[in-house]
Design a protein around this nucleic acid. Structure first.
Length: 285
DNA sequence: AGATCTTCCTGTTGGC
DNA sequence: TGCCAACAGGAAGATC
């Protein structure tokens, strides 16, 4: 389930391997991932072929390739999407959705960039709304590792909202890049219950929470960053972080790392929340 | 506008 | 063995 750290690993991997290359051909094998492109599969392909990749950028969980034309190839991995780099002619993945043939670079030969997505919550589109920040994601807030992220603005906006703090962390117009896993981890570290309303939290509590969001993401980024370099094809949204370092997410029944109380799981927005019922006391109703 | 809920997808798992 | 419900969940869109 790619969140900001996983997408950043993908962005860095793409920057290293596809920057400066030209797109020689595009093959859309399933229409679903291109559903948000205003001009459909045909227009999608036409806007990409012959374009040089000038930059690889990211905001929150979105990434994009800035093209020579001024357009951008904008992507989101959803929950199962991958961007893989493979030698041309390698066997197709079972859930291969879009194939991009990239021309040879100075030192390397041609390569295929492949969008693979089992569940197809992810998607790709060509944005004509600017390569600096595609218009389709103008509503997405800056993410917490963006140097221009405004802590004061986040705190003041969150303190005017009545929703629970976990909902606010997942609201990509307030802060981007945080998903279910890192929300639960940051709340556990902050000893905050996700249902605590934003307008009942103090500035210092919210600032500390931001610090924990950055810490947990930073730790994941370190591990993902190292695993990527070792394996050329691992431009895929797996950071390897899930196995060891989680204190709350997916830990139902396991003892809390601070107080040994069993971690609990509750239903939340068609998914799950994990928390320590002792360290993270629910608000009075 | 803010809060909340539904919907889109497929593969795996577990209960009966 | 087979069937079906539950589950994984980001974010757009609808509703109030």
């Amino acid at each position: 389930m790619p969140e900001l750290p996983e997408v950043e690993v993908v962005r860095a991997g793409l920057q290293r391997h596809v920057l400066g290359r030209t797109i020689a051909g595009v093959d859309v094998l399933h229409p679903r991932p291109v559903r948000r492109d205003a001009r459909g599969s045909t227009g999608f392909v036409a806007a990409l072929v012959g374009q040089r990749i000038d930059a690889v950028r990211r905001r929150g969980k979105y990434f994009w390739l800035a093209l020579g034309s001024g357009d951008a190839l904008l992507g989101h991995l959803g929950m199962s999407g991958q961007m893989l780099l493979k030698d041309p002619g390698s066997e197709d993945e079972r859930h291969l959705r879009v194939r991009f043939a990239l021309e040879a670079a100075a030192v390397d030969g041609p390569v295929e960039m492949r969008f693979v997505d089992q569940r197809m919550f992810g998607g790709l589109l060509v944005s004509t709304g600017g390569a600096e920040l595609p218009s389709e994601i103008a509503h997405i807030a800056r993410d917490p590792i963006d140097p221009e992220f405004d802590d004061d603005l986040f705190v003041s906006r969150a303190r005017r909202r009545t929703s629970g703090i976990k909902r606010l962390l997942l609201d990509q117009t307030l802060i981007s890049g945080v998903g279910n896993i890192y929300a639960d981890e940051a709340l556990w570290r902050s000893r905050l219950h996700g249902e605590r309303p934003g307008d009942r939290l103090t500035g210092p509590q919210l600032r500390a929470l931001l610090g924990h969001v950055r810490d947990v993401m930073g730790a994941a980024l370190e591990q993902g960053g190292t695993s990527f370099d070792a394996l050329y094809v691992n431009v895929n949204g797996e950071s390897g972080y899930f196995d060891r370092s989680l204190d709350a997410y997916g830990q139902e029944g396991r003892p809390c790392g601070r107080c040994s109380t069993p971690i609990r799981r509750v239903a939340f927005m068609n998914r799950s929340s994990f928390f320590c019922p002792r360290c993270q006391r629910p608000p009075r109703r």
